[in-house]
Design a protein around this nucleic acid. Structure first.
Length: 643
RNA sequence: GCUGCUGUAGCUCAGUAGGUAGAGCACACCCUUGGUAAGGGUGAGGUCGAUGGUUCAAAUCCAUUCAGCAGCACCA
């Protein structure tokens, strides 16, 4: 007697082994039609796989989120089948479902072309229409290895070898295509439907290791319906429109050119934005009793050797040699410099915590393939600071930092932040007791600050655990911005100390912390977040005065002067163009406020205010518009002060 | 760094089978003084990423190189 427990708490009994499909049929014909897979005792199973022990089962239909993964995984197999039919000399390796679809990695001498993609996609549709049955089989290890040896497929042999001893080796077959696979799959290629699309080809290293051969990866995406697929494609198109590289050019914020790869030429508009952000952070940090400093751009290699950077990160450091045969390095980080300032004069426990901040201009020689607009560059500015404190102060300083960070993110319009907790890496300095203490301090700090973290095991810095604050951009890419790191090592290596209450010299702890991370990256994220329509306080140009005809030019100039004197960033458009033209142009360049003035306004001493995104205008008196605009354009921290 | 793709006026792009380049926008000048997302006309502007090669002749073919893009690897 076989006992099958269902999610509603009911039980069914069978005399012989059954499949989930049979159980579904017993429950009802509708469910039998809808069921595509099952969760059997917590594992994902094929609907036709035989169950021969007492089990808890749950049926999966297209309504379950998991069905998307099934569709995509099936789709990956169909992709592989199509490729093998069209290009028999190709070897298949692995092909999983991923967050945005699926991919399959192939090994072959010549890469796929974009034209090949269309051909392959066509063949995939045919395979779906063929309605090929997908069946599961099991191999012994020897059978599996023999199968792939006969076919001379070393990649698959490696995969078989990597399967843990106690796991069964399963394979799936559809038509003539057989693939080593854990499953599960749906019953037929037809179930996948036609809402899929091949997206791109790219190289990818075998097993993600750059020492291994490069495979040809084909990416695709698949959904349960054409509507879902279309929605996804539309989203991608939308995302492309808000790409910071396009908008940065269109809004005249910055440019980059060959002669300075990975460095940014900031135009007046972009630099205004940059300075506005910098000043905002400067005010926030000053309130929190940070002391701002500036340390040298180039420092002799001996200091980097002492700090450990030379050995560990030398490859990514830019260096310059002097005539005296000295080697200087452009700083990739600010910490060693800050320790030098800390070391000037004897520090007392009374001086701690000492919060030292810097808008540190850093250079890192990033690999060429890593560069990405202004998000990943070789020259950037960190909103960096190091807090020198005692071990006892780690907790309270961390809490204060997390709260500050959350508040600052909120001011920029971000409330969904993921926080990763990266704990001790395999290669690390310091003893376990110290790590326990450091990790414990960070953990309790996140709890006190009300922050949830996901664990990122083994990814901490070699000198201590860290929190990484991650934002997602418009195209779904994650960017690490803020960070908080507990460091017991650098104070030791660079000999920082303080005199404690008991008169003994002790090592301070260093908290490395940044909120925006890199200002350049932050600006890139902001551009994409807001599609270039910056909040008024950040807009390079906040107000444009547009006279309707030349006869009101003088009135327009008067208003211009008035608003500029009140501290607003204001432009005036005196060109010989119609008002519609001017409105269009300043709207496309995302100026938040346009003031149109004609004879009527001049007569009544008013303006016609038009806000970006609105079709309407509001007529206001000069007094009112001035105070209105000033409050609209006020940075959030200053606005809070007034309230 | 690796694989693939791309590189033509300030910008967005076209250029068919190799015979020394075209459009729209922007810009300049002129006309127009017009009430909320492009009024009209005229004109100037590029040697086709760079270097080398094939050819009577190359933006167009080949090689090398640089940069950008996508993905992989990297991201203290």
């Amino acid at each position: 007697m076989l006992k099958i427990a269902l999610p509603d708490g009911s039980e069914r009994h069978y005399n012989a082994p059954v499949t989930a499909a049979q159980i579904a049929a017993d429950i009802g014909s509708g469910l039998a039609k809808a069921a595509i897979a099952a969760v059997v005792n917590g594992e994902n199973w094929d609907i036709n796989r035989v169950i021969n022990v007492d089990s808890e089962i749950r049926l999966i239909t297209f309504k379950d989120d998991y069905s998307l993964e099934l569709i995509r995984h099936d789709c990956a197999h169909i992709l592989a089948e199509a490729v093998l039919e069209l290009f028999p000399e190709t070897q298949v390796t692995i092909g999983p479902a991923i967050e945005t679809g699926f991919y399959y990695d192939f090994y072959r001498k010549s890469p796929f072309s974009t034209d090949d993609l269309a051909t392959i996609e066509q063949r995939m549709h045919e395979i779906v229409d063929r309605d090929e049955e997908i069946t599961r089989g099991e191999w012994s290890r020897e059978e599996a290895i023999r199968f792939y040896k006969d076919r001379n497929e070393p990649f698959k042999i490696e995969l078989v070898d990597a399967i843990p001893e106690k796991e069964t080796v399963s394979y799936y077959q559809q038509g003539k295509f057989i693939d080593l696979c854990r499953g599960p799959h749906m019953v037929s290629t037809k179930k996948v439907g036609h809402a899929f699309k091949l997206m791109k080809v790219a190289g990818a290293y075998w097993r993600g290791d750059s020492n291994n051969p490069m495979l040809q990866r084909i990416y695709g995406t698949a959904f349960a319906s054409q509507a879902d697929l279309q929605a996804y494609l539309n989203m991608l198109e939308e995302a492309e429109k808000r790409d910071h590289r396009k908008l940065g050019k269109a809004l005249n914020l910055f440019h980059m050119q060959e002669e300075a790869t990975g460095s940014i030429f900031w135009h007046p508009n972009g630099w205004t934005l940059f300075r506005e952000i910098e000043n905002y952070i400067r005010r926030r940090l000053a309130t929190e009793n940070y002391k701002e400093v500036k340390t040298p751009q180039m420092i002799d290699r001996s200091l980097w050797e002492a700090s450990g950077h030379w050995e560990k990160f030398g490859e990514n450091m830019f260096t310059a040699n002097t005539q005296e045969d000295k080697t200087l390095a452009l700083k990739p980080m600010n910490c060693p410099g800050h320790v030098q300032i800390y070391r000037q004069g004897v520090k007392s426990y009374r001086d701690l915590p000492l919060r030292m901040s810097e808008f540190g201009s850093c250079h890192r020689n990033e690999p060429s393939g890593a560069l990405h607009g202004i998000m990943r560059v070789r020259a950037f500015t960190q909103d960096d600071a190091h807090i020198f404190c005692t071990e006892e102060q780690i907790n309270s300083e961390s809490v204060a930092f997390c709260n500050l960070l959350k508040d600052i993110y909120k001011d920029f319009g971000f409330s969904n932040i993921r926080v990763k907790f990266s704990d001790r890496p395999e290669v690390r300095a310091g003893d376990d007791a110290t790590w326990d203490k450091a990790e414990q301090a960070l953990t309790s700090a996140t709890q006190a600050a009300g922050i949830e973290t996901s664990s990122n095991p083994g990814e901490g810095a070699f000198y201590g655990p860290k929190l990484e604050f991650v934002l997602t951009d418009a195209i779904g890419r994650d960017w690490q911005c803020g960070t908080l790191q507990v460091d017991f090592i650098l104070p030791e290596r660079l000999d920082a100390e303080y005199v404690d209450e008991d008169g003994l010299r002790k090592r301070p702890v260093m908290l490395h912390r940044a909120i925006l991370g890199s200002l350049e990256r932050w600006i890139g994220i902001l551009i994409e977040q807001y599609s270039g329509k910056m909040p008024a306080w950040l807009s390079p140009v906040q107000v444009v005065i547009a006279p309707i005809t030349e006869t009101t030019n003088n009135y327009a100039k008067f208003i211009y002067q008035l608003l500029e004197d009140s501290g607003l960033r204001v432009d005036i458009d005196l060109r010989n163009e119609k008002i519609g033209y001017k409105i269009r142009e300043h709207s496309t360049s995302k100026v938040p406020f346009i003031l149109a003035v004609g004879a009527r306004e001049e007569e009544a001493k008013t303006v016609a205010l038009r806000q970006l995104g609105s079709q309407n205008q509001e007529v206001m008196t000069l007094d009112k518009v001035s105070s209105f605009l000033q409050s609209q354009c006020m940075p959030p921290d200053l606005l809070n002060n007034i309230k």
